[in-house]
Design a protein around this nucleic acid. Structure first.
Lengths: 327, 327
DNA sequence: CTGAAAGCGCTTACAG
DNA sequence: CTGAAAGCGCTTACAG
């Protein structure tokens, strides 16, 4: 820890004007000699310009990213992909976590705006009216990920079709006692759209009676819902809204001596690497989260440059066939 | 997107002075009536103060966090734990990723300093001379996580003892052809200290000939090293520097029809939730990464408040016995 | 309880 | 190639 050093201190030490020091740090014309004096002064003081004071600076070169969680596989992929893309394009990325709380998501967007980002990417928990105000009032472009946003630009997974595909896949095995382990409707994409896809897919195979449980996104929640399910009655097929929930289901089913898939089929959504290591390998829908991040980043940069972009982009998915669904 | 609205605009709209608006946003005295006028004006413009311009503001209420990766289990845990702790204490958290590049780590620290954070937490890839300069020149406290830092305050895992414990555990099974799948020495904690613990632990059981391979932290790297290992000669025990590497090893061993642990024992470090779902369950050291984050956060806050803190704190670990090591 | 004024650390035309 | 001066959007004593 050291006291704050300002541009004035460096200018004085180097015997030049503040404006010259400013130019030095911003790539303006400075004679080699002068440049060297400034470099020395700055180095000796460990000086680096206070970004906060660059009020007039046109662009910060920084992009803000808001994510719903710091420890989900999907968020990890989205963040990583955005971060890399931005770095290649010469932008820095700053991340803020909403911890699955819509209030924090909104606060994070506001904060990032006030931090003078050049653009903001929001992997959203749930789109609410307040988003419209924020986006409308934003001095910089905002691109929404994961949830459809009627007020703005969004990049989303194809939750309905993915759900439908999985619904059909499992439906074709004619389960007698199918169940769906889902999440709250607040998350429209997963809680409503994906679930509806699954139900419609099952229905298309004549499977209409489906028990539906709801929890959060955790491993524990997967275990709890599965325990609940089994104590409520028989089950021979469990479709989980995410792989993590399926991990919890595996744990409980296997602990009870039930065989997957002989006694109970299990399927999920996520396509985590770990899923293929399970025994039996998990049948899962792999969303292309890297593409979501990549496309979101690319789209945001286009907005910043004033280029035209689509209002909504839908990213595809892939059904990965494991051995966890009875055939 | 909208044009930038400033405090002057709001002041004019509300018919008050800028200073009054400033007070409104900073919890100073403002009459209820005036307060209401300002609220309306601000709301109608979607105004929020530009944090960047608060040059004099004593504290930003923000903590910067630098992590080596956005998609490792350990980083996820550390970030989550810091983020939650800070929120409870009334601080916001801003995250930057170094993507395993030491140059980026340093740049991130600098950036966070220039962004006027109240303190910085660095989960470090590798401590270099440049860190000393940065920490010495920093106007705010810096706490280092994951790597020991001779120049500053750090919170670390007990890599040596954990390595030793695992070395002994595997050593007691008297492997004939043990191997260690590790990472580069640049990462001192994992690449050197942990490995040395393992080797010493094995040695204490009389196991001295150990093949050592080195790669990066990815699943693919785990697969590659295992492939390499098998083509170089026989192996009957593989200790992996991380669980993810072990996942790669599982994949290759099982694909070749080798039985774990009958043909080859596998052990690792990480204690990921998924590890207990593998067949056989992975024997692994669980580091308390949540504690690392928590303690780091607590320590940083103490530094900010000027309270005394230990120079170095070591967090404990736990050996989780699975079924992947031959007994 | 509120306003006028100076100041925060930096940037940006504008001269020279 | 460099300096003096005004200005960025906000905060902070200081009056009143």
């Amino acid at each position: 820890m050291a006291g704050k050093v300002t541009i004035a201190d460096i200018a004085e030490m180097a015997g030049v004007a503040k404006s010259t020091v400013s130019r030095y740090f911003n790539g303006g014309y400075v004679k080699e000699e002068t440049r060297e004096k400034i470099r020395k002064a700055a180095e000796s003081q460990g000086y680096s310009p206070n970004t906060f004071a660059r009020l007039k600076a046109r662009e910060s070169g920084m992009i803000g990213v808001v994510v719903p969680s710091l420890n989900s596989k999907i968020s990890s992929r989205v963040m990583t992909s955005i971060d890399r893309y931005m770095r290649e394009e010469g932008y820095e990325t700053l991340i803020k976590n909403s911890d699955h709380q819509i209030g924090l998501e909104l606060a994070n967007i506001r904060r990032l705006m006030s931090l003078n980002m050049d653009g903001i990417l929001v992997s959203s928990i749930s789109i609410v009216e307040e988003h419209r105000k924020l986006i409308a009032a934003s001095p910089v472009p905002v691109v929404v990920l994961a949830q459809e946003c009627p007020y703005g630009i969004s990049v989303v997974d194809d939750d309905y079709e993915a759900g439908y595909a999985m619904g059909r896949y499992v439906g074709q095995t004619r389960p007698k006692h199918p169940a769906y382990l889902g999440v709250t409707e607040e998350d429209r994409a997963v809680g409503i759209v994906r679930r509806q896809g699954v139900l419609d897919g099952l229905k298309s195979c004549g499977v209409e009676q489906v028990r539906i449980l709801t929890g959060d996104y955790s491993y524990e929640s997967g275990q709890n819902m599965t325990g609940q399910l089994l104590s409520d009655g028989p089950a021979d097929a469990v479709i989980c809204a995410t792989d993590r929930l399926a991990f919890g289901a595996y744990r409980v089913l296997q602990a009870r001596g039930l065989s997957i898939p002989k006694d109970v089929s299990v399927a999920a959504f996520g396509g985590y690497d770990e899923s293929e290591l399970l025994t039996p390998r998990l049948t899962t829908i792999k969303f292309d989260s890297y593409a979501v991040g990549y496309l979101g980043a690319e789209t945001l940069l286009k907005c910043i440059r004033g280029e035209p972009v689509p209002k909504k982009q839908v990213v595809s998915f892939q059904l990965i066939e494991g051995d966890s669904v009875r055939r």
